[in-house]
Design a protein around this nucleic acid. Sequence first.
RNA 1: GGGCACAUAGCUCAGCGGUAGAGCACCACCUUGACAUGGUGGGGGUCACAGGUUCAAUCCCUGUUGUGCCCA
Length: 881
Amino acid sequence: MTTLDKSFEPASCEARLYAGWEASGAFAAQPDRDAEPYTIMIPPPNVTGSLHVGHALTMTLQDILVRFRRMQGRDVLWQPGTDHAGIATQMVVERLLDKEGVSRKELGRETFLSRVWQWKAESGGNITRQLRRLGASPDWARERFTMDEGLSVAVREVFVRLFEEGLIYQDKRLVNWDTALQTAISDLEVESRDVKGHMWYIRYPVEGDEEIIVATTRPETMLADTAVAVHPENETYKHLIGKIVTLPLTGRKIPVVADEYADPEKGTGAVKITPAHDFNDFEVGKRHGLEMPSMLDKQGRITLAELGEMPDFVRSLDGLDRFAARKLIVAELEAQELLVEVKPHPHMVPYGDRSGTVIEPFLTTQWYCNAHVLAQPAIKAVEEGRINFVPKQWENTFFAWMRDIQPWCISRQLWWGHRIPAWYDEAGKVYVARDEAAAQAQAGDGVALTQDEDVLDTWFSSALWPFSTLGWPEQTDELKTYYPTDTLVTGFDIIFFWVARMMMMGLHFMGDVPFRTIYIHGLVRDEKGQKMSKSKGNVLDPLTLIDEYGADALRYSVAAAAGQGRDVKLGAKIVETNRGFITKIWNAARFLEMNGVKPNPDFKPENAKLPLCRWVLARANEAINAATAGLDAYRPNDYAGACYRFAWGDVCDWFIELAKPGFASEDAAEIRDTAAYVLGVLLRLMHPLIPYVTEALWDHFGYGAACSLISAPWPTPVVVQDEAQALEATNWLIALISEIRSIRSEMNVPPSLKSPVLLQDASPQTLARAEQNFEAISRLARASEIGPLDGPVPKNAAQAVLGEATIILPLEGLIDLEAEKKRLAAALAKAESELKKVQAKLGNADFTSRAPEAILEEHREREQSFGNEVTRLSAALSRLA
RNA sequence: GGGCACAUAGCUCAGCGGUAGAGCACCACCUUGACAUGGUGGGGGUCACAGGUUCAAUCCCUGUUGUGCCCA
């Protein structure tokens, strides 16, 4: 065994260890093995994406879970893959084409798609390559892409079946139309932004020489107004209901209708109705049987096609952009003295989350999925606890959305994606089938068919991910073994986009939930808690952090900060600090190695005799329990904390320090064996969290074959002889050393000066412990000797109380008498105040009669121990007077 | 406007009926045989505010204020 380097160099070993794990087959699921499966489906990242800190968080948490379960002996499938991101990918490739000076349309559909596949082959693997840098351990051999042939079969199968069941249908209604991308998008892809807009008040003349003033934020849509609505109870306008308005600019005759949608409190209480350009107006239009002409085309330009005969002014607007048209229309209204006033009016305007342009409500025929029907079993599954959200409060968000779910518009006017398996004959009749031949069979020989031009929403295929990746609609062994999956790990931002839809599709087609637990984690923010964004310039690149500090430091940082329901604040400083922990472990191992520690397969922890060894084994038991409980409860911060406290607090600060003299004593063998055993526990315990450094040390010490820690068994608590007594003995020793250090530090006694430690009124057991541990006490508490106080208390000694005994440090001449008096007085005051509090409670009859016996007992003990402390501190203080 | 979180040491957070904690930062001391990427010690909190329940409230309940997120 070569000695360990002075420090851990992540860059020099991460790639090697990762390759070793992969080559060992540790990542691979083994459906043939007779082991309980544990499955996580990776939320497929966007194929155009590159690894950002959000991925680093979610993938680290998933990797921790799968490595943990793998070590517990489960047959782990962590299913990797990417989704085809219809809009995003098409945009990326179109931008490339732009540079070549060709457009998608010039290229044609087939050629364009081949260019997308070419792009995917060259650049689509970015994010999965980057995931490896993080140490993620999915089953790469099973990697899937939502546009793979198998997954595409699943998409067509689902579409056809839902169509046959009437759960997919075509409908003409308003959609959110992106005029830049020229496609429909779903409600979820629209973000409302606060905009400082205006409210225009426009005079509409009513028959009989009256007028009605309407208020609108979108004056240009008046070209397609087909009514004016007022509230039926609105006294101001009641008499106008049923009268005819001459719509300005167009001359169209439109009715005044009574509808409760017209809020008397808003604007003037009269509202223009444009059914083809507003979701609320559309409903009003349906209620009153109004015509629904459009006045905008797919690009958001004025079109006269559906408006009929129009005067010259309106004709002059043909083809003009909607915002330019607005200006001209307002100017014209003003010129005609029809504009009453303009008021600033902050309101919400819908924007496309991909294109960033204003979304138009647009009347078109699209394919819809009846989400309402599919949602019911999903709601029930959560209500009945067959699916659990962690943290639980996300259920509320889920229920609120699911109970009011709208029809899901699933068609997109794009080329990149799953083309809708629907064909039309010349009369426009639709045939939905698994392939063209089947459609032809339905239509009959010789009927000319053309396939629907549109593709499906990317989330439609993502919704099938938990079973399409396992081979569905084939009834594969994988499907039987791994469905339902165990845990879904994701951020709350895609509960509706993806999580809910997987539940709907999984329950409908598999008859069972797609996963049992949904672990929702927070968002990664910068050190100040600000959302990361390119415009703010506060984006952290996880790959840079890995290069600089190592993957382990990054993983530890995000996991330790991932409290339940909490956002993760991350900065380079934090990762740098946490790298110190990785280094600490490395150095502790290095020290043990220098002292001849190596794994001894014959060592039986239950035979350990030394109190220190039994103590550290007992602490290891506690750490194992705490770490395992943290992981079981999806509390990565608790898990990381348990590892940190055990590694740094117990092993480094105390076990190694107290063991130092032992390496040269007759107890050396047991100490070395215990140290090796405990290091082995520590490495296994921390492996899911910080896989690289632990594997490097595991291999170096020879706990197993190279790259075998990933497959090593998860540690379990061991039997420790007389565990309680072992804990007590070493805890006393630690307390003694801490007390002495505290006195010396506060009295400014230089460490170079050793002092005797005298114990007044110490029990024989205490004295024995003190003598047995003299070397350690000498090293750690700078004691020149330790023993019972023999004779009177030396003058002007420093003193402290520990249990039944008083610790006396004869430091005459070295201590500042006043400072020591002050210190003792403070300690006494503290003890007295605690004693008073306890006594007050015990003196309260209500307390003693109602509090449980265990609490009473605890209080009595505290009364005694504080009482003892008060007595001893008073005595100590009086000796200084 | 509706809903959900959150408010504990300078900062980040844990605790959640019975003795208020950690890490970082800060101050002081220490190059003691792995680690200065270190060690030791220390200061620092009426647990947002006001009521209520209870023998007992940071913890449970109600309200107020402030912050964040989601939906309209």
